[in-house]
Design a protein around this nucleic acid. Structure first.
Lengths: 352, 352
DNA sequence: CTGAAAGCGCTAACAG
DNA sequence: CTGTTAGCGCTTTCAG
């Protein structure tokens, strides 16, 4: 296995020149650069990462702390990881994957052992015990998710308020006058106070702004029974004050927002059991990644969780943190979701 | 940031003693060990990974090459990655994540830069261009998936033949006399010749052993149209030779095996469109991870792809490769899947 | 059972 | 524009 010394010898230059050719940190004459490049190719030289990290005090690795274990994830995680990994490679960095179940010690280990130059912390909760630790580290940390106390850290997340608004407005546009929001499971309600509240509040606000009724059914556990009950309650609520079943020809029925992606299959099943057909009798809009939404049966209208966009943004901010200019600590970056109507929304009032 | 030198000074010993205390590669008197440990705690010392790798020629990192980009994965990837990551941590290793789109150069980079001590290559295809490269590396490589030419490498995979058999036998047990297998999408048929063939052949063999008819409908693209057509063909086939619709009270109808997890929602939709109810008119058994199967509507009976078991096995074999005893190159390790009946299989002939 | 010392392969001042 | 040199922090012989 060749070292930079071998390259230097073969090219007839000094070892440092080889280093500078690779890093571009110093002007090199075209002639020398050519010779060195040729030697590198010929020997298929690769710089030893450990040595490089030791001498240069940069590992060219970013640590990624992923929320495994707890993950009953409806599909957004993988694209996220993929995007971070490819993004890192584009900047000549690698990704070290650490699972969140290591807790706060993952952070001190990554920092203490000099395993990486920066850390991305995924699925940050509202009051996340890792935040205070993270903000005390010397390596920059990027949060995915917005905690209550960002503590000067940079955060990137989906704009959940916009998502709640979008879902409700989309249903109102299709003529729904009664809306119900199936909320998050109890665990999430306790853990993720941040986005849970932001989504719900924005949904309610949008409804009231549009002058339509909106019931928030929450929490809803991810069990068949709980979702069935919640769907029942939502449908009952909608029927109240409406008098009869089917008298208004223009009434598109209930507009149902499913805030937690994981509940979608259960909700669809619950509706089917009652003989209620989404896209005809009611509309269903769920919070889901596009790919997952398109793969349910029937494909469910969705407010995209855009993990791809969020992670692209995360990569961008990450390498700003690693860049030359001091990026002025802190800052919250929100990515706006999109609403896509699929088979579960009714056509709407104005013909369409 | 303290170094092992600082620890040594504080403990009143030499640097090498600190090293030996940490590695246990040399007997240390209890007294000295205590002092050193105390110093380590006090300074919250962490060994510098780069320096350790450089001097010790072990990185304590395993490279994981994941099949992103192409992945329309029905859920098995994440648990796999998670299991590898936790398993590695249990052996005091970290995981460096690399995406497969880097191709064969990912391997040479991991090896050349000394980024890891071993490599796990996921979703290996039958004739995978990375195999010859992998088998030429100095770092041990573990394949997940069985290529045609393992080239002396260790492979771990699900036993797809057993899976095909299991699916068919499960349906036969429930009284089905006519079975159809919805095969893999064209891409997979061309790419993954290995397990595609193994699954199909075993299914057909099991059917013929049981004396029941079995039609293999393949390839089936993952589009609504293609799956709809395939389901139609499967149902027609079953109706032939049966004469009428519903005369045999004991005839549990068609037994449908969906070999490719990604087609499941489409297949369920296609059945629903025809008014055919799984679990009553036909049975459906799909090849899916348990979690995914439980989350479809209705929950579909499945032959588990057991990515968790496969990855546990992979970790086990991986650290055998990294262990002290030379593990005698090569070897194929197959993990046996399980069949779980959910709501999409009929009750069966004998009451049940 | 413990210490001293020689690198591992690279980068980054210093010198020209 | 290029070469020389001193480490980065650890492991591991080689001596006790």
């Amino acid at each position: 296995m060749p070292t930079s010394k071998d390259v230097a010898r073969l090219a007839g230059v000094s070892q440092s020149t080889v280093s500078y050719v690779m890093s571009g940190k110093r002007p090199i004459s075209e002639e020398v650069r050519q010779r060195v490049q040729a030697a590198i190719e010929e020997l298929t030289y690769h710089p030893n990462a450990g040595a490089r990290a030791l001498a240069g005090r940069r590992t060219h690795v970013v640590g990624l702390v992923v929320p495994f274990g707890a993950s009953a994830d409806p599909g957004g995680l993988l694209p996220f990881i993929e995007t971070i990994a490819s993004g890192a490679r584009e900047h000549d960095h690698d990704v070290l994957l650490v699972t969140a179940d290591e807790g706060t010690s993952a952070l001190t280990r990554l920092e203490g052992r000099r395993l990486c130059d920066a850390i991305v912390l995924m699925e940050v909760e509202a009051r996340d015990e890792r935040i205070p630790v993270a903000s005390g580290l010397r390596v920059p940390v990027l949060l995915v998710g917005v905690p209550e106390e960002p503590d000067g850290l940079v955060c990137v997340d989906l704009d959940f308020a916009a998502a709640g608004r979008l879902a409700v407005e989309g249903l109102v546009e299709r003529g729904h006058r009664r809306i119900a929001v199936l909320g998050y499971p109890p665990e999430a309600v306790e853990r993720d106070i941040g986005y849970v509240r932001r989504f719900g509040d924005a949904a309610l606000a949008a409804a009231s702004a549009a002058g339509v009724e909106c019931a928030l059914v929450s929490p809803v556990a991810h069990t068949a029974a709980a979702v069935r009950a919640a769907v029942g309650r939502a449908l009952e609520t909608a029927r109240d004050g409406d008098g009869a079943d089917d008298d208004g020809l223009d009434d598109p029925g209930l507009g149902l927002v499913v805030a937690s992606g994981g509940a979608v299959p259960l909700a669809l099943t619950a509706l089917a059991e009652r003989g209620v057909v989404p896209g005809r009798d009611v509309s269903v809009v769920a919070m889901l990644p596009d790919a997952t939404a398109a793969a349910t049966s029937p494909p469910v209208s969705n407010v995209s969780t855009e993990s791809r966009d969020v992670s692209r943004r995360a990569v961008q901010e990450l390498f700003r943190l690693l860049g030359d200019d001091p990026p002025t600590g802190g800052g919250v970056h929100l990515v706006t979701p999109r609403l896509t109507h699929r088979r579960t929304t009714v056509a709407g009032p104005a013909g369409a």
